[in-house]
Measured scan of single mutants.
Amino acid sequence: ILQTYRAIANYEKTSGSEMALSTGDVVEVVEKSESGWWFCQMKAKRGWIPASFLEPLDSPDETEDP
């Protein structure tokens, strides 16, 4: 089962193997590399994304803190 994550910042791809993101995009993580790059898919797009640009979809938003 794939894990679902949300983009927390815009990411512009710098090579053909990467995938561009916009803040709020929801992606499915296909593979996690120890290098800190994750292979993700979103609709018909697939590519590598730095893991630091993603957060788990089920994590609470910062605005929901008590």
Rank of each mutant, 00 (worst) to 15 (best):
L54W: 02
E64F: 12
G16I: 14
P60A: 14
A7W: 01
S52G: 09
A20D: 12
L21G: 00
R46I: 05
E12Q: 08
Q3W: 08
E55G: 07
I8N: 07
I1K: 13
T63S: 13
L21D: 00
E34K: 12
E64G: 11
E12F: 06
Q41I: 07
Y5P: 01
S33R: 15
I8W: 04
I8A: 00
L2S: 15
S52W: 09
Y11E: 00
E64M: 11
W38S: 01
M19W: 04
S59R: 13
D61I: 13
E34R: 09
W37G: 02
C40A: 09
A44C: 11
P60R: 13
G24Q: 03
K13T: 14
F53C: 15
V30K: 09
A20K: 10
M19V: 04
W38G: 00
D61C: 13
I49H: 02
A7P: 01
L54D: 01
I1P: 07
S15C: 11
Q41A: 08
W37Q: 06
G36A: 03
P56M: 06
E18F: 04
D65S: 13
N10Y: 04
T14P: 09
L57E: 09
S35T: 15
G16F: 09
L2Q: 15
T23E: 15
T4D: 05
A20T: 14
L54G: 00
W38Q: 02
V29Y: 01
A44V: 06
W38Y: 10
V27I: 06
D61V: 13
Q41E: 07
A44N: 15
P50N: 04
T63K: 12
A20E: 10
P56T: 04
Y5G: 03
V27S: 01
I1W: 07
K32N: 02
A7K: 00
W38C: 06
Q3M: 15
A44R: 11
E34V: 09
E12K: 11
E31P: 02
T23Q: 12
K32M: 06
T4I: 11
M42Y: 09
M19A: 01
G36Y: 02
E31H: 10
I1N: 13
V30W: 04
C40F: 00
L21R: 00
V27P: 02
D58N: 14
M19Q: 02
D58P: 14
A9K: 15
I49F: 05
G47V: 02
Y5W: 06
A51I: 03
E62D: 13
P50Y: 02
V27G: 00
E28G: 04
Y5K: 00
Y11R: 11
W48P: 00
D65T: 13
Y5H: 05
E31Y: 08
L57G: 05
P66G: 08
V26W: 03
S52V: 09
W37Y: 12
S52A: 12
C40L: 00
A20P: 05
E31A: 08
M42L: 11
V30D: 03
V29T: 02
D65R: 10
A9P: 00
S15K: 14
V27L: 04
L57M: 14
A51G: 10
F39W: 09
K43E: 15
D65K: 14
L2A: 10
V27K: 01
W37S: 05
M42H: 14
S52T: 12
G36V: 02
F53E: 03
I8E: 02
V27T: 02
G24K: 03
M19C: 03
V26P: 02
T14K: 12
P50C: 03
L54P: 00
S17K: 09
Y11A: 02
L57N: 11
P60D: 13
E31V: 07
E28W: 04
E55I: 09
A51R: 08
G47R: 02
G24W: 01
L2Y: 15
G36E: 05
T14V: 10
D61N: 14
E12A: 06
T4V: 11
M19G: 00
V30P: 01
S35I: 05
P60W: 08
A20G: 07
F39K: 08
S52C: 10
S17I: 14
P60E: 10
G47F: 05
T63L: 12
E18I: 04
E64I: 12
P56K: 12
A20F: 05
P66L: 06
E64C: 13
L21I: 14
S35C: 08
I1Q: 02
A51N: 09
P50T: 01
L54H: 00
T4M: 15
S33W: 05
G24I: 02
N10A: 09
P50D: 04
V27Y: 00
S52N: 12
V26A: 04
E34F: 05
M42K: 12
Y5V: 04
T63G: 14
P60Y: 12
L57K: 07
S59W: 08
E34H: 09
F53W: 07
R6L: 04
W38R: 02
K32E: 03
E55H: 05
G16A: 15
S15Y: 08
A7N: 01
Y5F: 09
I8D: 01
T63R: 15
D58Q: 08
K45I: 10
S17G: 11
A20M: 07
K43Y: 08
L2H: 15
S15W: 07
V29R: 01
K32C: 03
T23P: 07
G47K: 00
A9G: 13
D58Y: 10
S17E: 15
Q3I: 10
T4P: 06
I49A: 11
N10K: 08
A9C: 12
V30I: 15
S52H: 13
L21Q: 01
T14W: 03
I8G: 03
G47W: 00
A7I: 06
N10C: 08
